[in-house]
Design a protein around this nucleic acid. Structure first.
Lengths: 154, 154
DNA sequence: TCAATCAGGACTATTTTAGTACTAATTGAG
DNA sequence: CTCAATTAGTACTAAAATAGTCCTGATTGA
């Protein structure tokens, strides 16, 4: 199905929330409260995204998180890279440049082409676009089964 | 990482093998022997791909499998659809047309755009391209770790 | 009738993903 | 200087998805 992990979905929500007030420092608890995600999960996400440079953190009392750059500068590809590692439809195709035998290896060509296409699409969509989507997914029916935006039970 | 499942990888190998002799009927054992995959796995794959119409089967003694259509008519998207279900980066985005609230739901727009781009890329690559890749992946180094084309241990 | 073969599904094992908990480090404020 | 709030790191547990196996039944050519 080639689907994103839940964590990435949540990550988008968290980033969308931070994007709403880019200048304001938000603690993990703030984010958890407003996104309705469980605190430990939000905490984990923020830590991950700090390490990968999507958000910046301030430690100590009154500490918290902020976006590392303008929302327009954060793409879907950035989020997925941060939370799932580099996009790579096959094992070796993610390591362009690392693979010494790239020009011998037939795998590169076709799957690589696909990878590039995917990445380009993911690069074009930025946080503001995603943020618009995040907060208004209504309950809907998927093949007869009623679903809602899936969030962490807590 | 957005990666394909192993099964899909194997599926490609199996199809590539069938594509080598499109007119010849191959039993599951034949395929297993020549692809170096475990028989039960190959069997499972072939059954799945038969049900989804990628290959046709003939039962009974002297039975076996053949491609359902010309190799050029089978795309990467077909293989993934058959073995992993429809490509859909988010939950609801796979059900275009089924979702009654599609025009209300903000999720459609951005992720949908990404989905379409991915699907187009997957549609363009056909079995002959993939087949060329399948049989000559040499041992290589991935970030210092020596790897080979991963196959089923059996 | 038998042996070879596919069909279907149940089941188990493995791996990946999600989620939690605990301990250490940092820092502003009283 | 101490305390409370807060992030950092990491280890661990739980749940879900994926992979893989096996068994039983149906089909068919010899």
């Amino acid at each position: 199905m080639l689907k994103m992990s839940k964590l990435t979905d949540y990550g988008t929500m968290v980033l969308a929330f931070l994007a709403a007030n880019p200048t304001r420092m938000q603690s993990a608890s703030d984010v958890a409260r407003d996104t309705h995600l469980a605190l430990p999960t939000v905490s984990k996400l923020l830590k991950l995204m700090t390490r990968t440079g999507l958000v910046v953190s301030t430690r100590g009392a009154l500490g918290g998180y902020q976006l590392a750059r303008a929302p327009e500068e954060i793409s879907a590809a950035d989020v997925i890279d941060a939370l799932e590692g580099p996009v790579a439809i096959t094992q070796c195709s993610g390591s362009v440049g690392h693979c010494e035998l790239e020009d011998v290896c037939g795998v590169s060509s076709s799957w690589q082409k696909i990878n590039v296409a995917i990445r380009r699409a993911l690069d074009e969509v930025r946080l503001p676009h995603l943020a618009a989507a995040e907060f208004r997914m209504p309950p809907m029916n998927l093949m007869g089964i009623p679903i809602t935006q899936e969030t962490d039970r807590r």
